[in-house]
Design a protein around this nucleic acid. Structure first.
Length: 581
RNA sequence: GGUCCCGUAGCUCAGUUGGAUAGAGCAGCAGCCUUCUAAGCUGUUGGUCGGAGGUUCGAGUCCUCCCGGGAUCGCCA
């Protein structure tokens, strides 16, 4: 149950009764939301102000009519006009009791919606180059993308989590050559790894594996042939490495899409370019050098260009390099046409800050290949600075080495890593302080939220001690005498719970998973706050030794809080422990 | 120079996609432990929302121009 949706419908109905001439486009602009200041009531709507002007009426006059209409609503204890024409509602207790019951009934589905109506959404995230283990720079995008995917799925979208493997570029050839050196080392040769090659130790076992598989065989064949074999083996090994890193964070993709499969004379790139030509989206021409910064080796030549400017980009884009091979972007156009042809009209790409210059191009490509039928939202994750006690921090043993994702997770754990990365808007740079993240105090939001969840369990344990015979099963809670929940403090807690479905929906629409993290933190604060009230006023304690009926009702409230925290943490991919040790 | 992101309390950040008198946490100050976990809570101090215009019933939010910080900038991936 979503009280805001409920009253949004009632307001729309009322308007249609009072002013039949109000159209659906106006109704769509009306919101029913919690007022910023709780003193104004439980719900507030801007309906009168939206509708007044088109009707040629005064907002307060329209508001007055609506107020009169809602006088008859038994779920409303007061309605009044405020300010320029807001209508504020105060709701009767039974509404909150219904909310509480519905949470018990819906359980882990509370907050789930059909917002997406089953529409397919492709969310591409991570897509780190398969040249080594994941470093910490990838972590934010990985966690963000994964959580956004969960959020969208929870909101009724048919989500595909996708990883694009950049396995076709020259860096992969370098990777293969680097691996070949490790192979020769495995055979006992003393080989230096020259600069420009991948020096990481993670290639050593791959070289070992090649020795075990081929003996000296690879040295006895032409180098090109050997490199082709090595490339296959090392790509598989690197992807295994990356998948293992992602698994550490609880991240699993549905589709791993290889760039290489797009190449070739009959591949998607060739077909897409042919198609773009038919559409007149390609031409041969020259590009202006970038203003203010002409590259030294700038070569003014005629080349094959995509009309990206027709779709909002700043300049047209090259598709074929001077050596005749396709540009990265050409492959990406083909890739996104492939996504579209697989049935995705909604696409989201999660990219790092260093790719912000790529956004317009990507959106232009998506519009072009879908003939404007698909939308592409690009979410940029800004940089994360690793800190320790306020000082910039590098964990690398050798200079130049990057801190790996695995290092971070091993150091602070999955829950803290995920939560901290989500407890911040994605488009703002953030500091990630190891000292704070590991701290088990209220300064640490992960801990604060998990503690609220553990506290709910603790209350149940104490209740069972106090009433050894009493039934605290879900069935018993469902039939608890919830009408006993009447204090302002309790009902305030229910109000927070009532905002959950609305919060989820808004976060899904905005593609902003951080809102879930903030909500869960707010809920934890409200719960801790109520718990502490039992100190000043023992009547407000959850467990009341003299009153098993009231205790049961309050435990239903505790259970609802527990449930919503669980649902929120589930979206975030953070565990909800029953006890903190 | 172009493009994108950020600028909100001393610090770290929210701000319900244009709503009412701009919020929270830390830090500071004042309190609360014979208590369902003090791993917590309550109260309080603190603001020309970077600046200037504009759009309208109404702007932290949208538009334009500046200032400051960051990212990025032909065929790399």
């Amino acid at each position: 149950m979503d009280v805001f949706a409920l009253f949004s419908a009632r307001v729309s109905n009322a308007l249609q009764v009072l002013y039949p001439e109000v159209g659906p486009d106006l109704l769509a602009r009306i919101v029913v939301e919690p007022p910023r200041d709780a003193a104004h009531g439980d719900l507030s709507t801007n309906a009168a102000m939206i509708v007044a002007k088109p009707l040629g009426k005064n907002p307060r006059e329209v508001a007055g009519a609506l107020v009169e209409h809602f006088q008859a609503d038994h779920d409303v204890t007061s309605v009044e006009v405020a300010g320029p024409g807001f209508i504020n509602f105060r709701l009767a207790d039974p509404i909150w009791h219904q909310v509480l019951r519905s949470i018990g009934q819906q359980g882990e589905s509370y907050g789930r919606s059909n917002l997406g109506q089953g529409a397919p959404v492709n969310i591409e995230y991570v897509s780190a180059n398969p040249t080594g283990p994941m470093h910490v720079g990838h972590t934010r995008g990985a966690v963000f993308g994964d959580t956004l995917a969960s959020l969208m799925a929870f909101s009724g979208y048919d989500v595909t989590r996708e990883y694009y493997i950049n396995d076709a570029g020259s860096q992969i050839n370098t990777l293969a050559r680097s691996t070949l050196l490790r192979y020769r080392q495995a055979l006992g040769e003393i080989v230096e790894i020259p600069s420009g090659f991948y020096p990481g130790d993670y290639l050593v076992p791959v070289g070992q594996g090649l020795k075990e598989e081929f003996g000296t065989g690879l040295l006895e064949m032409p180098e090109a042939e050997a490199l082709a074999i090595v490339k296959e083996r090392v790509l598989v090994a690197m992807m295994e490495l990356i998948k293992a890193d992602l698994a550490k964070l609880g991240i699993h993709h549905d589709v791993f899409f290889s760039e290489r499969q797009l190449h070739g004379p009959d591949g998607d790139i060739a077909r897409t370019l042919a198609w773009l030509r038919e559409q007149g989206m390609i031409y041969e021409g020259r590009l202006e050098p970038p203003k203010g910064k002409t590259p030294e080796d700038w070569e003014d030549r005629e080349q094959t260009l995509f009309r990206a400017t027709d779709y909002g980009d700043d300049t047209d884009r090259a598709l074929i390099k001077s050596d005749g091979s396709y540009t990265y972007f050409a492959a990406d156009i083909a890739y996104h046409r492939n996504k579209f042809l697989r049935g995705f009209k909604h696409m989201i790409n999660v990219l790092g800050a260093d790719h912000s210059g790529y956004v317009k191009r990507l959106q232009a490509a998506t519009k072009a290949v879908s003939l404007n039928a698909a939308d592409m939202d690009v979410r940029i994750c800004q940089l994360v600075r690793l800190m320790k006690n306020g000082e910039p921090f590098k964990m690398s043993k050798r200079s130049g080495d990057l801190v790996t994702l695995a290092d971070v997770v091993d150091e602070v754990g999955v829950d803290a890593t995920r939560f901290m990365l989500l407890f911040r808007r994605n488009d703002a740079a953030m500091d990630f302080d190891f000292a704070l993240v590991k701290e088990q105090t209220r300064d640490n939001p992960v801990f604060y939220v998990q503690y609220a969840h553990a506290r709910a369990y603790s209350i149940f344990r104490n209740a069972e001690k106090e009433f050894p015979g009493l039934d605290f099963s879900p069935a018993a809670l469902a039939s608890a005498d919830i009408e006993r929940i009447v204090s302002a403090a309790e009902l305030d807690l229910v109000r927070v719970l009532a905002a959950w479905p609305r919060t989820v929906a808004a976060a899904a629409v905005a593609h902003e998973p951080h809102r879930i993290a903030f909500y869960v933190h707010d809920l934890a604060a409200a719960f801790h706050g109520f718990w502490a009230k039992g100190k000043d006023d023992p009547q407000l304690r959850f467990v009341n030794a003299e009153d098993p009926t009231l205790t049961l009702a309050r435990l239903a409230l505790v259970d609802a809080v527990r449930q919503v925290i669980v649902n929120g943490l589930a979206i975030l991919g953070v565990s909800a422990p029953e006890e903190l040790s």
